[in-house]
């Protein structure tokens, strides 16, 4: 049974696209067939994060409007053959998408893939609503920071009212993915901790991705972090989250930065040098 999953947040810059790429790659690495659909029409970036920016010929808008067939727009990943990308258009605006058109594309993708992962644009407007409209489940990407948590709360409200499943009274799974988490700062009370955010948003936790240079490096080189540095803590967090999405029961541990004696003495610079 194929799953349609939206990765959303309300707020921009919290890690939706990075998380879409990393979760998708991790699921594909475990043998699932996965397609990543970029819904951020006009501001596409999933192609860049996936390292496929020079391979885009046709896009989601072309398919929705009937200017291209779906297989013409799909880009197969060169590193994992079960991973595919459907890019967004860079030159059109979000009004180029219609509900009927998006529905047809998702129905067609369901025949070919186990996972259809929709990368939502920021905001609560039409683009974000279309990205979530036909989803079976959602990953809400949140930073432990007030504006991100508030916007996530708003998006959770929309998922409960504006998705097709919610309108039909069906169950809709929601998972919280806490990103850019700094365990040391949370321990010192400088940043909201996992319990704080969970208490406020009241949805199940999918994983905690630590703030990490490996994530930036991965997007710099256009390779999901689970492929680029599979042994990094961020990659492990995403891989574990992907296993939980497949139903595995894995304990969630707070990512604690292990600092050596020297880096304790000399602070961050020594640790990153």
């Amino acid at each position: 049974m194929p799953k349609v999953m939206v990765v959303t947040s309300g707020k921009g810059g919290v890690g939706k696209t990075t998380s879409t790429a990393s979760l998708g790659a991790a699921l594909a690495q475990s043998g699932q067939s996965v397609v990543l659909v970029d819904f951020d029409v006009g501001l596409r970036n999933l192609d860049l994060v996936m390292g496929a920016e020079r391979r885009v010929v046709f896009d989601l808008v072309n398919v929705v409007q009937g200017d291209a067939k779906l297989p013409q727009a799909l880009i197969r990943d060169k590193r994992i053959d079960t991973l595919t990308l459907l890019p967004a258009s860079q030159t059109r605006d979000k009004d180029a998408l219609t509900e009927e058109g998006v529905k047809n594309v998702i129905e067609e993708l369901k025949e070919k893939f186990d996972w259809i992962i929709c990368d939502s644009p920021a905001g609560i407007e039409k683009g974000a609503q279309l990205a979530m409209r036909f989803a079976d489940m959602a990953v809400i990407v949140t930073n432990p920071e007030v504006s991100s948590v508030r916007d996530s709360d708003r998006i959770i409200g929309m998922l409960d009212s504006k998705t097709l499943r919610a309108e039909n009274g069906d169950t809709f799974e929601k998972h919280l993915l806490l990103t850019r988490y700094n365990a040391a700062r949370a321990a010192r009370g400088e940043m909201m901790n996992v319990q704080d955010v969970l208490e406020i948003l009241a949805i199940p936790l999918l994983g905690i991705v630590p703030e990490s240079n490996d994530v930036l490096t991965a997007s710099n080189v256009g390779c999901p972090v689970t492929l680029n540095t599979p042994d990094s803590m961020a990659a492990k967090a995403y891989s574990d989250a992907a296993r939980r999405l497949r139903g595995e029961k894995l304990e969630i541990v707070e990512p604690m930065e292990r600092k050596g004696f020297m880096s304790r003495l000399f602070g961050r610079k020594a640790a990153t040098a």
Binding site: V146, R150, A186, G189, E190, M191, M192, D196, I200
Partner: peptide, 19 residues
Amino acid sequence: SRSAPVARDRLQILLAHER
């Protein structure tokens, strides 16, 4: 540096209202 509890309390009050 204990600003996290302030953030949590402000959010709880605000979101109760917004919901």
